[in-house]
Structure formats: structure tokens, C-alpha cells
């Protein structure tokens, strides 16, 4: 209560924007698929932080439920992603994205 009075909502917005952009930056500059996936997780966390913060401001639990679902989805995604990485690793002994430049967008 007093807490919510003292911390304006923009602060959370800006904090999560910063974390999101750092994650995006990581996606762009890292070459290792594993680090890229970690950066994606970071971006997801930025989103969740934003949702939880505004859940408090709106006094609305549905945003927290949304966060819960995002976590579930993230877990499933990570599982699939790691299997794809390991499949690649078995084949080429590397998960460096730039090593597989055969397919060019």
C-alpha cells in the first residue's frame, strides 16, 4: 500500500523494458544457441515482471494467472529447445549458430 504509493508504475515499466532490451541484445549478439535461449528466458522474465507489477496496480489476479501460464509454456519450450540443441550437437559437435550458415534467410 504505502509501497505502491511510493513506487510509481513507470519504474516497473522501465525496468522491464531495460531487461527486455538486454535480452534482445543478447539474442542478437550471442553465437551460442544455449546463450540465445537463456536470453530469451530473460526476455520472458521481463514480461512476467511487468505483468505482476501491473497486477498489483490494477488489483487483478488474472495477470498473475497469465504469469503462471507463461512459466508453464516456457518450461515446455525449454524442453523442446534443449532436445533440438542436443540433436544438433550429436550431429555436429557444436551449437554455434554461425557454424550452420548453410541456410541463409
Amino acid at each position: 500500500m504505502t509501497y505502491l504509493e511510493t513506487i510509481p508504475s513507470e519504474w516497473y515499466l522501465i525496468l522491464s523494458a531495460i531487461v527486455f532490451c538486454i535480452g534482445l541484445c543478447g539474442v542478437l549478439i550471442r553465437r551460442n544457441a544455449m546463450s540465445v535461449l537463456m536470453c530469451i528466458e530473460m526476455m520472458l522474465n521481463a514480461v512476467m515482471l511487468l505483468l505482476v507489477a501491473f497486477s498489483g496496480y490494477y488489483r487483478d489476479f488474472s495477470a498473475q494467472i497469465a504469469v503462471f501460464f507463461i512459466m508453464i509454456v516456457a518450461a515446455a519450450e525449454v524442453a523442446v529447445g534443449l532436445v533440438i540443441f542436443s540433436m544438433m550437437f550429436k550431429k555436429t559437435s557444436s551449437i554455434d549458430l554461425d557454424d550452420w550458415g548453410h541456410l541463409k534467410g
Binding site: 500500500m1 505502491l4 504509493e5 510509481p8 508504475s9 513507470e10 515499466l13 522501465i14 523494458a17 531495460i18 527486455f20 532490451c21 538486454i22 534482445l24 541484445c25 542478437l28 497486477s55 498489483g56 496496480y57 490494477y58 488489483r59 489476479f61
Partner: peptide, 27 residues
Amino acid sequence: CLLVLVALVSIVFLSAPRVCFAPLAPV
């Protein structure tokens, strides 16, 4: 990424009065 960040932050500040809500009862 800095550009995206600047864009986001400026959006936040431009619409500041509409985002900042009066605090409600405890959650």
C-alpha cells in the same frame, strides 16, 4: 536495442499520466 529501449521509455513517459494509477487496496 538501445533504440528500442529509448522508444519504449519515451512511450512510457509520453503517456505517463495515463499509466500511473492511484494505488488501490492491498493485493
